[in-house]
Design a binder for these strands. Structure first.
Lengths: 122, 122
DNA sequence: CCCTTTCGATTACAGGCGTAATCGTTACGA
DNA sequence: TCGTAACGATTACGCCTGTAATCGAAAGGG
């Protein structure tokens, strides 16, 4: 279905997931500063996302209003799954184990996840 | 330090992490079938990994023996962190929450992670 | 000793990506 | 009305990636 979203494109998507529809300029204002991009760059990215059918453009006078066609949750799940499949045999546990083993988890993280899991079970 | 490892390169690295040192042909035999690659492709990838200082080559007669210079754990942690930073604000909990919410976690997964966390705490 | 196979090294080449600049059109301000 | 600013569209361009083919040297078989 939807083609892969590149890193730079993803930055644009985050803006649109946060707020939509937006004009190209709106997007540029929100994303360009942090990235140091020119407005042209943002327009190129919007064009590519359009071509990939990841966003839609609705005419609004002589400009367009852009909004996402892909949901953030779907994207996030896809990316997460890719990583977990590629590096951890498709299972989440080894990821958690790996981070824990490397002290990349604070006590607080652990407590949070435990609380979360407890809630899920109920 | 080390440059990014591409997807295709990663497949080669997995072979070397599993067993090393290996000749180019060894690597090709182990990785090419699953990927449908020619032996040449594997050699190109080994060359690129060499250039990136991700692997080392030791002469062995008229051929080379390749072995990783980067540890799998470091790579895995880097990639995991990248994803978690990019999509979950750097925290693991939202990743777990996201997968749970999407029913991407089985009861067994949950039990495993709980057991794992309990062990860590002790 | 020569032909063929085998190596690594070099070169290739299209497509994606990051990052724009330029072009053609139109609307708006002076 | 005329120049200019703002838009989207088109074009650019170098680097990375995936995926090899080709080249030159060397080694091994007959």
């Amino acid at each position: 279905m939807s083609e892969r979203i590149s890193d730079a494109e993803h930055a644009v998507m985050e803006v649109l997931w946060d707020e939509a529809p937006l004009t190209a300029q709106d997007v540029a204002e929100r994303v360009a500063p942090a990235r140091g991009w020119s407005a042209n760059t943002v327009k190129t990215l919007l064009g590519r996302l359009l071509a990939k059918n990841t966003i839609a453009a609705e005419e609004d006078g002589r400009r367009y209003l852009y909004r996402p066609l892909v949901e953030r949750g779907d994207y996030v799940e896809g990316e997460s799954r890719r990583l977990i499949d590629r590096l951890f045999g498709g299972k989440l546990t080894p990821l958690v184990a790996h981070l824990a083993e490397r002290d990349a988890l604070t006590d607080e993280d652990i407590a949070e996840i435990e609380a979360l899991l407890k809630e899920i079970k109920s």
